[in-house]
Design a protein around this nucleic acid. Sequence first.
DNA 1: TTGAAAGCGCTAACAG
DNA 2: CTGTTAGCGCTTTCAA
Lengths: 354, 354
Amino acid sequence: MTEKPPVRARRTTLADVAARAGVSVPLVSIVMRDAPGASAATRERVREAADELGYRPDSRARMLRRSRTQLIGVVFGVQHPFHGDLVSGLYTAADTAGYELALSAVTPGRNESRAVASLLQDRCEALVLLGPSLPTTELADLAARIPVMVVARPVRSKAVDVVRTDDAAGIQLAVDHLVELGHYRIAHIDGGRAPGAAERRRGYREALSRHGLDEVVILPGGLTEDEGAEAARHLLALSSRPTAVTVFNDRCATGVLDVLHRERFSVPGDMSVVGFDDSSLASLSHIALTTVAQDAERITTLAIARAIARLDGHDAPDEREQVIAPHLVVRSTTASPDIEPAAAPSRGVQTFST
Amino acid sequence: MTEKPPVRARRTTLADVAARAGVSVPLVSIVMRDAPGASAATRERVREAADELGYRPDSRARMLRRSRTQLIGVVFGVQHPFHGDLVSGLYTAADTAGYELALSAVTPGRNESRAVASLLQDRCEALVLLGPSLPTTELADLAARIPVMVVARPVRSKAVDVVRTDDAAGIQLAVDHLVELGHYRIAHIDGGRAPGAAERRRGYREALSRHGLDEVVILPGGLTEDEGAEAARHLLALSSRPTAVTVFNDRCATGVLDVLHRERFSVPGDMSVVGFDDSSLASLSHIALTTVAQDAERITTLAIARAIARLDGHDAPDEREQVIAPHLVVRSTTASPDIEPAAAPSRGVQTFST
DNA sequence: TTGAAAGCGCTAACAG
DNA sequence: CTGTTAGCGCTTTCAA
């Protein structure tokens, strides 16, 4: 094995470029930043020199010198598919606003506190936390040091800003859709204590009542497909079986679908199913789940805008929590209910063409 | 709306801590870094002052002053589940070695070049690229400036280091497993021009030949479940139908499974199926796909180790490419073939207990 | 063991 | 328009 000394060539700096172009360092700085204060001719020469030397500005030195870093820190779960969508949107939004993003992942071996700590060391000016599980008190403590945007999770504290989907409205969209198709016996498989679950339960209740439906059927579910499968079995065992079901999330809905298929139930013929999240799972062509989609673009745009507003000193106590409307993505797991003689509606006959 | 001036309190610095503790700045630096050269009493006092002031070192200033940044840049695809596993492993490996990670995501609106550029501006000392799609020439150009580790993709150029799974060996594991179960008519659904597909095809061929099996059945597949579904239909239409199939990846295998189920084929009774990746898809309990798992931990450990070796000036031309053995995860989609009278083996009867 | 001085690469504030 | 001077927060000499 060759044992060379670490030949790490020093990076080319502004000084190098300045020397080659025969001008002062600050002048090069001006040119590189496209700041006013240099003649066209000089710009030309400096650019040329920089290119020849392959100059790259040092963002660290730059941030150190500037009072502002223009850096927004993002904490995300490396395994959560929806966080991917959010990160994409955040990049776009930050870029548009002239900010950079610093990513810090939460992994099985790296908790949120560590992720946040590293962002603080990087001198981020604001933090965007995607679905954080930190206790409210810690979030509040953090918010005392630096503007904190919590995304996709409701927080009771008024110390942090929150941008989240209107979970209740999402389920209501689902129920509206099902009612429109002619369903009137609609169940809900819930998410237990998961964030958003309570809201979605509430949305289900409200939607039913709004449509004058009084058969509230809420089955305990969860976040996983196994829990969905379990709930589906209970669903099928019900004496007066619903013709449709809204499920806490896509993953759980997948479990429901699986049991339905195994038990030879036709979807959507015998049972319509609606998920929540519009995850990649839902769009798999053999699943083709009708689901409630969160508006990642809007959520991220608002989160960045809010963070920057904070940095600019604009406080808006009345906008601490921004609740974004979701929309329904109709795929193949919902349709009008098949008319079974046994289950003929007892209150006003409703019929549907094929 | 309240319009306060941006009250951005200046961060507490070493100087603040020094003043409070009544010592010089460099001494505080020594204490904060746990470097030798300070008395126990001083350390105590400095620590106390730092705590009271809530001091956090500024990583930018630190890196600027040090010759080394101890930073390794990582480019990953924000939507790729396996990249999540890799990022997790990289964090752990880097942490152990005393390095930090700088994450840069590839998103629909942010290509690899941008992701790399931002890492270069951050003065990373080495780059780890997860499944990059950059052309080989660009990778080589990049490697001329900075050590580059390419993970999970074979690269012909000797300029970059590569750490990847032994794709051929993976498929061979799958075939060995199937042969052991008693299968001798084994098909392969391939990944076309996808990275690794050629290797996997080769592994399939070699494994069959090693077992003295000469019925090579390679069906064009792809990376998606739709392509898998398509291939599965061809598979079922084959005159002398295989009893088992190895599929390019889990996603494609999911499509295969779906068609099998729809056509009322029992898995694994009528057909055994093996995937590749051990993605979260594979472990969904209602899929429970037997699959080939890549050793993310080993891959990431080696990638980091290699990067650091490079930085330390250790060149190892013979280790430019490190090929890691995968392992088989047996779940519920593989079993001994059902003995159908019609398909009774014509060359030495093989029987199997239930 | 401690402190003073210098400088990492850059930008801001000024002078010419 | 251009150059000089100063300093961001930190670490590294080097003296004391």
